[in-house]
């Protein structure tokens, strides 16, 4: 087994999802290389080399990898594929953008959202919004797959001492270019890495009311998430969306406020350790998965929750 993991990063720091993917790789074998492709991304390679279990770090540093566009990333990875039995990336927007392209160029299938590794060629992945789990076996020489972060613990960020090897960049494919980005600025933890998430749905009524949730989130050190309905209505940006077609999260505590609990939403959060639902409709499906349900008007309950958290803190 020789496993190539594609690191997710912003040229400055390694994204936590990479660590979960490294853990999945360790379940396949010990010969693990991490590819850091970017521009002026030496610090990321250094960080990757420290991650427990990583044997080798490959760094490809060139201006045309600065934004890791799929066209150039795929060309690079395909050039490095030979000799590897598995190519893994986190099942994030970036991983899902690039890996199918790699697989097609290698003429192999791609396996999306792997949540369990049964053997070197057999994997479990959710389909139909996670209502069903499929066990699939790959007949291809190279297994190309994206790994769902919530299904594997993060590898430790220290303890490794991998060698860093420079690889020659592939030629710029030249068909696409980066124009700009609008990233959501927040001091709160990242949704997929947060220990606690407070999410709001259509019941929040408008974007301003999300301040009620942010107040509670800040007292809990939590991230703020949302249902599709809340994002579609423009209450919050797209990167807040939790669900089948948004982010998949599994925090220790998930608080769903004014969210009905559609299957598409549940697909993104039902593996959370403890789920709390606050909804004024006692029939809302969210209560079927909630450990603690509170039937109440959120506009009374959330401010009260904020006060109770203050009391808890004061009591030490």
């Amino acid at each position: 087994m020789s496993i190539l993991v594609i690191a997710e990063h912003d040229n400055v720091a390694l994204k936590p999802a990479t660590l979960n993917t490294v853990t999945a790789a360790t379940q396949l074998g010990e010969d693990i290389a991490v590819l850091v492709a970017g521009h002026n991304c030496g610090a990321v390679a250094e960080a990757a080399a420290q991650v427990a279990g990583v044997k080798k770090v490959l760094i490809a540093d060139a201006p045309h990898y600065a934004h890791q566009l799929a066209e150039n990333m795929a060309a690079l990875v395909v050039g490095l594929a030979s000799g590897h039995t598995h190519i893994l990336a986190p099942a994030t927007a970036a991983g899902k953008n690039t890996l199918p392209r790699v697989a097609a160029l290698l003429d192999v299938a791609q396996i999306t959202d792997v949540i369990k590794i049964d053997s070197a060629d057999t994997f479990v992945r959710p389909i139909y919004a996670g209502n069903v789990l499929a066990t699939v076996q790959s007949k291809d020489a190279v297994k190309v797959m994206t790994v769902r972060g919530t299904a594997f613990p993060a590898a430790t960020v220290t303890g490794g001492s991998a060698a860093i090897e420079t690889v020659a960049p592939a030629t710029d494919v030249g068909v696409s270019s980066f124009v700009g980005q609008q990233l959501t600025q927040s001091d709160r933890p990242e949704l997929t890495a947060a220990r606690i998430i407070v999410s709001g749905g259509r019941g929040m009524g408008n974007g301003d009311n999300f301040k009620l949730l942010e107040d509670v989130a800040d007292k809990l050190g939590a991230a703020v998430g949302a249902s599709r309905a809340a994002v579609d209505a423009g209450f919050v940006p797209n990167d807040y969306q939790v669900g089948q077609t948004g982010k998949v999260v599994a925090p220790t505590l998930y608080v769903a406020v004014g969210i009905s609990g559609a299957i598409q939403h549940l697909a993104g959060m039902k593996d959370s350790k403890v789920i709390v639902a606050i909804n004024k409709d006692e029939e809302a499906p969210i209560f079927q998965v909630a450990d603690y349900g509170l039937v109440a008007d959120l506009f009374a309950a959330v401010p009260e929750l904020s006060k109770e958290l203050d009391k808890l803190k004061a009591a030490g």
Partner: peptide, 12 residues
């Protein structure tokens, strides 16, 4: 729509 927000690319 990317994980951190929005990104714009120009394609030929």
């Amino acid at each position: 729509e990317v994980d951190g927000g929005l990104e714009t690319v120009a394609l030929k």
